[in-house]
Nucleic acid binder design. Sequence first.
DNA 1: CTGAAAGCGCTAACAC
DNA 2: GTGTTAGCGCTTTCAG
Lengths: 356, 356
Amino acid sequence: MPNRKREIPTTPASKVPTIKQVAERAGVSVATVSRVLAGKGFTSPERVERVRAAVQTLDYRPNRAARNLRTRVTQVVGVVISDIQNPFFTSVVRGIEKVLEGAGYTLILCNSDEEPHREQVLLATLRAESVAGVIISPTRADSEAVHQMVLNGTPLVTIDRTLSMTSVDSVAVANTQGAFTAVNHLLELGHKCIGMISGPDQASTAKERKDGYLQALQAALLQPCTGMIQYGNFRQEGGYHAMNALLDLPQPPTAVLVGNNLMTLGALQAIHERGLAIPQDIAIVGFDDMSWATSLQPPLTAVAQPTYELGVTAAELLLERIHDPQRPVRHIILETRLIVRASSTGQFNPVPPQKG
Amino acid sequence: MPNRKREIPTTPASKVPTIKQVAERAGVSVATVSRVLAGKGFTSPERVERVRAAVQTLDYRPNRAARNLRTRVTQVVGVVISDIQNPFFTSVVRGIEKVLEGAGYTLILCNSDEEPHREQVLLATLRAESVAGVIISPTRADSEAVHQMVLNGTPLVTIDRTLSMTSVDSVAVANTQGAFTAVNHLLELGHKCIGMISGPDQASTAKERKDGYLQALQAALLQPCTGMIQYGNFRQEGGYHAMNALLDLPQPPTAVLVGNNLMTLGALQAIHERGLAIPQDIAIVGFDDMSWATSLQPPLTAVAQPTYELGVTAAELLLERIHDPQRPVRHIILETRLIVRASSTGQFNPVPPQKG
DNA sequence: CTGAAAGCGCTAACAC
DNA sequence: GTGTTAGCGCTTTCAG
């Protein structure tokens, strides 16, 4: 069916209706059409009807480029995340989409890959597209590129991570509290020797989760033994190496809190490879609940983050900022929820059952 | 640090340099600047240098809206997939991004959620944005909206799934062959009673994989017993129900091929809930290899799809189509690869060890 | 090889 | 209320 190879060079120009044609057909001026479509000013009901009819029959859609050129604003927002492959972010993006779509915005999604340089390039691109606003999970808490963008006057909100030097709207998760709760759970189960696989300290989320871990130990009057905190790059392979390091310790932990979802995957792999049993030999709690958590054997205990709501909130914040640039800066923190499954509970015995 | 609340209404207009200012600074006409930037025609080296310098110092970037308005083409392509949460698609998107970014294109990512109506709305939006082209995984093989888009003259390539009535560039995977190989693997292991969890028949991929399954059985002179093929919606929950149905059969299968990655997750959950052992009680092969495959216990045997390459290829095809609309339509098929892990091999004994 | 000038389609003053 | 008109910033004939 060779149905595509003609009309390309000829028809489109004559085919796509312009505001002028709508005006002619409706017997009004282009200004009136513009007003009716924008819902601005007042137009006699009768003319409104004529315009609507013309728009309908011509299947007219305003030319975005022309509108943008004239108004200097677009209906596009840029979203910059660090890893589109991470389900955490894809869920966040769904939330963003949901809100933005309802408001008539289009979304450009970009991957920074955790690289500050890429981040800079992407923001430059978004600026070139004259996006109406940006939602970003910054690679660094002191990202210069993001700072510039804000100074530049572009409406912007950070998500998941926060900025240290720049005053800008943000939505984040109660990371410290989430980690605290998770470690407490482990403590209550009787664990005394709890390890942590943390992300890089530059990421505010990693730092906060580690803080929560430390605070929980402190509250229990415990000290993290040497080597009990290992670092990974927030990727699967990082979790794998970190868990191996933990297990190679003279006295390995009996329980581990893993700093994010992907590293949990790597940690599990390391555990399985050594033939260790979860939670008998080692209990595991992951940060961020994922769809695969219930498919694991045993199912994974996890600190669930309100990912979708994170996205929704960020988008709402951005929309409000776009609408009112003078509005005071706001920081919103959403709480996490510990979902207890068998990877932490199960038949763990911190002390061998000798008394019973 | 209240560093954002001023310059917003005043400076931007005067701040962002236009081609006119570049021209003035370089002491040439705007036409010359335009030519130099586009690399068209010939300009004296000396003037070229002056223009470049002016562009540099002014940090000039052409206004996209103005350019689009004038040339009637954008540097944006739309990508419509059915589920941004599915790692399969995110990996594909990475491949697309990679190529498009190199070519100076921006990417608008959209979710159809498998809903034909949403698909239609999204394509309308993309049309309104006058995208240069579209890469899409159609919800239906006979999607009317996609068909219209093609007729409309928009460069378009389908990915993963194909269209039945429309002649258009496509990139897909050798699904039939992949499923065939997987089932053969199970057959060689001694399984006689192999089940399949398939996706909906409307999706070309689901259909093809089921065909591969059937062909493999046929080649082995076996018939699929009644109920051996269960259907799911390509989501986790679908796999869960389908696997339960399979296990409720009077004579349940000893091995199962699952039609996609998410359904595999659901299937595993069902198996774990019943306390069955993999692969002793039931062997599993998933379609599409995922990052979590190696974190499962036992690791999952899977038909690996060249997801990234799928994206790369689709993007290349689209670019070529944009560049040359008359080019003959091409269909590219990429092969799969069976990755054998312990979920299918391991200590399975099709016949109880009674003779040894 | 270079510059002047005519718009692309739309919005927003500004008149009527 | 409604129409006229002047550009937004850019590309691209068309002269020179």
